[in-house]
């Protein structure tokens, strides 16, 4: 076992123990019942205890190994942030922006997680995916999502309209156009 594997297993076991403890804590107010008539808490609590034991075993086995040399690989923060961020962005904005614009955003953002990303290919990829998906899911499969959402609408009272109104406000204070 190398030093990296050792550290990985120590951390892995600790996480497993934490998850087990979490389930045990949240599940502690569930009714255990008896072994005859098991309550909703019986099986989950047994499993949580097993989980903690497994975590202990994993960490324990790793700690028994001698410490070696070696570094760790850096986490790919850019990929993690861009890809998971793209999914979260989709969740927050799909109803407001509508499917087409949100997909443009998702594809453009996630494409930059690759080291081969380039502006031109990403833009055309985003346009292609957005066009294909809106056609497939809205036209063919009838997904109840708007093509473009209320955030982009120019009707009175919508966020974009009021934003634009406030930007255009100075124009109204100017001299009235002569007739």
């Amino acid at each position: 076992m190398t030093s990296m594997q050792r550290r990985r297993d120590v951390i892995g076991g600790l996480i497993v123990m934490t998850i087990g403890t979490g389930f045990l804590t949240v599940g502690s107010d569930l009714d255990m019942g008896s072994s005859f008539r098991m309550g909703p808490g019986y099986f989950p609590n047994v499993l949580s205890v097993v989980m903690i034991a497994l975590g202990l075993a994993i960490t324990g086995l790793a700690l028994r190994c001698p410490k070696g040399e070696g570094g760790s690989t850096p986490l790919p923060w850019r990929g993690l942030l861009l890809i998971l961020g793209a999914a979260v962005f989709f969740g927050f904005a799909v109803r407001g922006l509508g499917l087409a614009p949100v997909l443009l955003g998702v594809v453009l953002a996630s494409a930059w997680a690759s080291r081969y990303a380039a502006v031109r290919t990403s833009v055309s990829l985003a346009a292609g995916v957005a066009a294909f998906c809106t056609f497939l899911f809205i036209q063919m499969l009838g997904l109840p999502l708007p093509l473009t959402g209320p955030w982009l609408s120019l009707e009175q009272g919508s966020p974009l309209a009021s934003a634009m109104a406030s930007v255009e406000l100075p124009a109204f204070s100017g001299p009235a156009p002569s007739q």
Partner: peptide, 18 residues
């Protein structure tokens, strides 16, 4: 692959939502 995975992510988002 870099042309493929952004499309997969878009599909996954729509799929999970739907």
């Amino acid at each position: 692959y870099h042309l493929l995975f952004p499309a997969i992510i878009a599909f996954c988002c729509i799929g999970a939502f739907s």
